[in-house]
Design a protein around this nucleic acid. Structure first.
Lengths: 274, 274
DNA sequence: CGGGATCGATACCCGTGGGGTATCGATGCG
DNA sequence: CGCATCGATACCCCACGGGTATCGATCCCG
């Protein structure tokens, strides 16, 4: 399964074998064996290109989920064995700072509270972390993060603001609309790296975290639309303007569906009661 | 993992080995190997008894989920490979009959509708069927069925009625309360088989399906509390009485969280629009 | 149009890991 | 105290997964 996912992602037997730390021939054989066992053609290969069949696409999605489940089983068992009863909370670096602080304070005051390790992660990573057992609970932001397959509780909904250089003409406006922001001359929206660490193609500068982002905006090279709470502690060289028709952002607390941990349950209850 | 789950369920190496179709010694070795790889003691064994450790309980839960995920990956890939684009809907035998009929009719009239195989299953089985890929979508009844880890949409909420023999003194009452039903002389609640096919201990007759149940009730050997819609097409020898304080039953349509199938999406949309 | 480069498949060899049988050691019971 | 039960250990063997060498097909370029 690991082998198939690697090939399906690379669409190249040689590179996939390298990534897996094995030679190419055993990889080829493993894939054909898998195809024979499933009675399904997973990959169309010519000597120049490898493409996924429909069945292959299904197995890529389902197989990834299965691999995550196995990883999660390993990790959670190891953690349970150490007797270390802390809980790992994942959240995007630089988001929901205030909410997170209130949550951690309130939970620490609960009877029976255990240690909470905060795991700051990149955009969209939380789902993966919950799924493969590296985190026990996470703060997500709808509609950006996927919550399929996770149990969630809504915590907070807020509007979004446009973040731009303090001196910009729009900075003095009481509010703006999405259409006005779409193509501000010289202020494109930045590009964020995807889960694989590469940046999508297109215009706009590349930013990896909020520090880089603030820098870019201060330099007048970008603007961004973000939740109100992300713009409360501003540098003097940045300004915010409410965006009237931006989709509202809902912060939710999410946890893997089979969680039987008292700590996670307490944390969720504390969060919803804030 | 399969080996560990078998041992953890049987709590007996010999029986587990038999169930797995292998001899006992390799099973013992496989488990110790797993324990060494995870660095965790999973089972306390004396020569007379085997018990789960805390870490073992975690691995049992997570490992089951992982095994289901692998089975689901296999099944869904095989199905995708056949090019057979039908969808499998699981529902409890004898429940939600009218709703199901309306849903199937309405969906069949949709443009792009595909074949729907209805898979009638026992109580509480739907979750398992969705998880291991044998079904694509299911009708569940809250609060009885677990929905953790599934995506759901609510369809319908209804009260519950008491089902008893037509001649019974309570049959003429306009309504009853839970407390009155708890210990009706000579009319105990029946026992249902669990997921493993065995009946729980206790009083009350054993019933495997609604036909057996109706028979038992008509014979004056049992009564049961069920959703209103289960009592609409009654045999003449049965009567229903609303139970005022029974928890309301919500019928939901559920599907596995990563479903990318247009058919499932259409079915869900049709169901919510009924 | 042909030679080289690229890439997946095939042929062949080898070592290890997982399976089998026989047996041991510990524990509970009559 | 002897026997039955049950998991662990010892020992053997083969099949499966991995490695190297090479083939065959396709595309690129001169």
């Amino acid at each position: 399964m690991r082998y198939f996912v690697a090939v399906a992602e690379e669409l190249h037997f040689g590179r996939a074998a390298q990534r897996l730390g094995i030679a190419q021939p055993p990889l080829s054989r493993a894939i054909s064996r898998l195809e024979r066992r499933l009675g399904a053609v997973l990959l169309e290969r010519t000597s120049r290109a490898v493409t996924l069949t429909e069945a292959g696409a299904v197995l890529l999605r389902e197989g990834r989920a299965a691999l995550y489940a196995v990883e999660a089983a390993e990790r959670r068992t190891r953690r349970a064995a150490t007797g270390h009863h802390g809980v790992v909370l994942a959240t995007k670096a630089g988001a929901s700072g205030e909410l997170l602080a209130k949550l951690l304070d309130a939970y620490a005051a609960e009877p029976g509270a255990v240690g909470v390790d905060v795991l700051l992660c990149g955009i969209g990573e939380q789902e993966r972390l919950l799924r493969d057992g590296r985190a026990d609970v996470a703060l997500l932001h709808l509609p950006f993060d996927a919550t399929a397959g996770l149990d969630t509780e809504e915590l907070h909904t807020e509007g979004q603001v446009l973040l731009l250089p303090a001196g910009h003409p729009l900075a003095g406006r009481p509010h703006v609309r999405m259409a006005e922001v779409a193509d501000l001359p010289g202020l494109p929206l930045p590009r964020w790296p995807g889960p694989d660490g590469t940046y999508p193609d297109g215009p706009g500068p590349q930013a990896r975290d909020t520090a880089q982002l603030y820098q870019l905006i201060a330099l007048g090279r970008a603007c961004v639309i973000m939740p109100e709470s992300g713009g409360v502690h501003l540098r003097g060289d940045l300004a915010t303007v409410p965006v009237l028709d931006a989709p509202p952002v809902t912060t939710v607390i999410a946890w893997p569906p089979h969680s039987r941990s008292k700590a996670v349950a307490d944390l969720v209850r504390t969060a919803t009661g804030l």
